[in-house]
Amino acid sequence: MSDPRVRPVGPYPISQGGWHEGGSSKAYVTNDWRLEKPVVDLEKCVGCLYCWVYCPEPAIDLLDRAGKGPSKVRIDYDHCKGCGICQQVCPPKAIKMVPEEEEVANNGSI
């Protein structure tokens, strides 16, 4: 038996007072939360940003992050939880929800 006074090695370092650099949650993947996944039809997408502005994650990546005009999007499949809001709010109906198992042409998985 090992010395009971020795502290076990935890899964990560312990900071002073429990602070952390912001944005670290990105390493945490939530893709197994969903039953359906959104697929963007880039032909129909007009770049209006509505899906981005209503996404709770955000799991909508803007193809033109630096610009000031319309930007087409792609889904961050590592983090999308499959809620389907983007499909609901998309004005040109360029997003459809398909079963998670379905093989889809990759429209920009990151």
């Binding site: 949650s25 502005v53 000031k68």
Partner: peptide
């Protein structure tokens, strides 16, 4: 216009809010 909104994300994904969370929006 929606196009003038700051596009640098202020929240990172990977949080544990439920799918379709209104408060996170």
């Amino acid at each position: 216009s929606i196009f003038e909104i700051n596009r640098e994300e202020r929240m990172a994904p990977g949080h544990r809010a439920c799918a379709g969370c209104g408060p996170m929006i």
